[in-house]
């Protein structure tokens, strides 16, 4: 039998876990996409050496599991004298992870901008920075927006792992509750549904945001 009523008294534990997950997701989405944008721009328009550096970073992150990256940052770096709290370590790990994946995605967007546009911008006397922000970025991001946002949701779901270094996120709450009342199945089922709700909500929020961000075609 399933006893979901046993979970009710722990609703505040679930809620604070949910809030930690949301907070980390929002922060890492912003920082990760910023990092990805910087790296993708470097990879696309930078010099040879910096292009290679970005490629190495992206391939290293994309070909190792997130949990190993997290353990490396949380357990490994203190050995080199860098002490990090669990929260800081997961923040950094999530950002670096999303940064690598979004670099690949954003680069595809940058690559889709035709050369003629960049040349036209140059002829019109725009500096490189102006060309980037006014000519390239908006259509490039519009093209890859769905891929980028689903990657952000994947990173949110992947953040369940940070409970392993005792960050008090939603998964940590589930573990805590099931260790108190031994209702493992109920506790994990409710948590899984909360994650599902969160990912649906995030997708909805991203879609709404996208409609506002890319209105330039309609208004002009």
């Amino acid at each position: 039998m399933l006893y979901f009523s046993d979970l009710l008294q722990y609703s505040d534990v679930f809620f604070s876990g949910l809030m930690t997950t949301v907070e980390l997701t929002v922060l890492t989405t912003i920082l990760g996409v910023a990092l990805g944008t910087a790296c993708a721009t470097t990879r696309q328009y930078g010099n040879k050496a910096s292009q290679r550096a970005v490629t190495v970073y992206v391939e290293l992150i994309r070909n190792t599991p997130f949990i190993v990256q997290l353990f490396f940052i949380f357990f490994g770096l203190p050995a080199l004298g860098m002490r990090l709290s669990p929260w800081e370590a997961s923040m950094i790990a999530l950002t670096i992870n999303l940064g690598a994946y979004s670099t690949e995605i954003i680069r595809a967007g940058l690559g889709s901008i035709s050369k003629g546009q960049i040349e036209a911008a140059k002829v019109l006397g725009l500096t490189f920075r102006q060309t980037l922000t006014r000519v390239i970025f908006v259509p490039a991001f519009e093209k890859i927006y769905p891929a980028l946002t689903s990657q952000c949701i994947i990173v949110m779901l992947g953040s369940a792992v940070i409970s392993q270094i005792s960050v008090e996120d939603l998964t940590y709450a589930a573990n805590l509750v099931q260790s108190r009342n031994f209702r493992a199945f109920e506790s994990y089922l409710v948590t899984a549904l909360l994650y599902l709700g969160l990912s649906i909500l995030l997708r909805f929020a991203f879609n709404t945001l996208g409609k506002h961000l890319f209105t330039y075609r309609a208004t002009r």
Binding site: L157, V161, A192
Partner: peptide, 23 residues
Amino acid sequence: VELFQGTPLLMQMFLCFFGLSML
């Protein structure tokens, strides 16, 4: 697809491991 892409793999593992033995 929605269920398994929208929930963390870790949760699915917990549900399979702790959940099934609980049932």
